[in-house]
Amino acid sequence: MTNSTLDLPKRPWRQRYHVAAIGWTLVLGVLLVLSSLMTGANLGTFLSNIDQFLALLVQMSHPAWSYLHVILQPLYETIQMAILGTTIGAVLAVPFALLAASNLVGNRLLRGLIRFFLDLVRTLPDLLLAAIFVAVFGIGSTAGVITLAIFSFGMVSKLFYEVIETIDMGPLEALKSVGATKVTMIWYAVLPQILNQFVSYFLYTLEINVRASTVLGYLGAGGIGVYLQRSLGEFNYSATAVIILATLVVVLVIDGISNHLRRVLL
């Protein structure tokens, strides 16, 4: 009996007193308490007002289908904005992605700068961009297209350079050995290898942008969001419900098409 206990290794005190587990639980607990205090979140308020919330849900569960023909045109506009914005963003992203790829650009400083710039672009949420571009370009779909272009630029460039970094360097070296220029090398050895992936990521970003574009109009950046804002402002929740359902259908259809195309491509 005593023998076997003597065999035991000494248990580190960190493990014996569960320091890590207790520490993390404490940190989590403190953060939770602080953030509840800071946001004034408590279940009581919610439960005491739940009847208003339910009333709203009841209204929304009776969609005003007659509203559908009003929003058809803005729905098209939303998709059009998403297509144009994603395209502009993706085209802009190509040179940046090439410059950010570690297997193409040896200069660490340049690469680091480009990547930092891309990180910066990615920090900005879509609605924030929309608010600023509406201020610059005025209310309308121009602001929406530009917002989506910048938003997808940040996203696509990262996806693109990660793809570029996985390419097979063989063909590139073959071209280099015969003295090809950088541009020739990219055109003949890099692009063919990544084209399918690019298109796939383009479609993926398009899916996300269609979702994003449906709310941009809330701040005046065109598309269905304008009507979303209008219906909510007029407390016309049965119209809101139609808009949300229609958006849902559009998003699902675009997702379906895009998923199908991506499966074909890869």
């Binding site: 800071m38 946001t39 004034g40 979140a41 408590n42 308020t45 919610f46 007002n49 739940i50 208003q52 919330f53 709203l56 609605l127 979702r211 449906t214 709310v215 809330y218 979303l228 909510l232 809101t240 949300i244 958006t247 849902l248 998003v251 699902l252």
Partner: peptide
């Protein structure tokens, strides 16, 4: 996932009033 977050926020503002609690919800 498809239900827009800001619409949710507006709906919760109805329930708990404007402010960060609606954002949390």
């Amino acid at each position: 996932r498809t239900f827009p977050e800001i619409v949710l926020a507006i709906m919760f503002i109805k329930a708990v009033g404007p402010g960060s609690y609606a954002g949390v919800l």
